[in-house]
Amino acid sequence: MSALSANTDGLRRRRAVNRLMEAIATAAAFAAVVVLGIMVVSVARRGGAAIDLNLFTKTPHPFSFTNQPSGLANAFVGTAVIVGIATAMAVPVGVLSAIYLNEFARARVAFLIALALDVLNGVPAIVVGIFVFALIVVHHGQSALAGSFALSILMIPLIARATQEVLALVPQATREGSLALGVSRWRTTLGVVLPQTIGAIVTGTTLAVARVAGETAPLLFTSSIVGDRLQWNPHLALASVPLKIFEYSESPDPADHARAWAAALVLISFVLVASITARALAARSRRRMGLHR
């Protein structure tokens, strides 16, 4: 008993260091949660009051300092259209590149592609914006499509990496079982490998959507010269929530400030809900992946 409780090998000091480090790590983790909490609360306090039906159904009133109903319907529609088209562009490319990366590429090529995806993931959004500006906007003018293209570039690495990580978890024995039947590689991938990764694809896509829905810089170059009319046509430049927040933050009208906070609250709520949904979906698909129960 005494041998176990005695202060041998600096036990007391080691125990103290252990406690201290544990406390620092815990504090750091809580700090992240606290920052998020303060942000959500402050945005909610300032924007909460301005959230009403008009915000979603009315377009901006042409005059400031008026009591006429005014809203950001055009910005919500624009963001939905731009992000929707970006998702439609990014999902096939992201999933197919993940399939190539994990199922077909040789080790050296796979390493290079994985590296390229990680670098692409780190490219600042404004660089992507200016790239699409030079590539498309200079010749064809601004449009929601150009904005979608810019956002899809940001989404592809997120979707590809999320998909690839789960493809790598599919046991090789599953592939061998199919290949041993004389089924081709592609049919094997499509028939027995990919179905196990649907959850991950949905999760990765949801996180990517949440990430780009608030992107401002790429849209500044590609879809920012807009009127206040409600538009659905992706060939035109469409308004977007993040740019409207930016615009209203500079308005002289306090009601516009409130609307900017409200839009920010909607955006942050969307990101929170999307992230939580994505985590739940990921947890579910991982449970399913936990083969053989």
């Binding site: 024995a173 599953t174 061998e176 079982g177 290949l179 041993a180 004389g182 089924v183 081709s184 179905p195």
Partner: peptide
């Protein structure tokens, strides 16, 4: 692929597909 079409294989560890019993055979 044509070789494996004629010469099938059963592995050391059972490796059914994560599908229904029917679909395992029908795949």
């Amino acid at each position: 692929v044509a070789v494996r079409r004629r010469i099938g294989m059963v592995f050391q560890k059972p490796n059914p597909f994560p599908k229904s019993i029917y679909d395992n055979v029908a795949f």
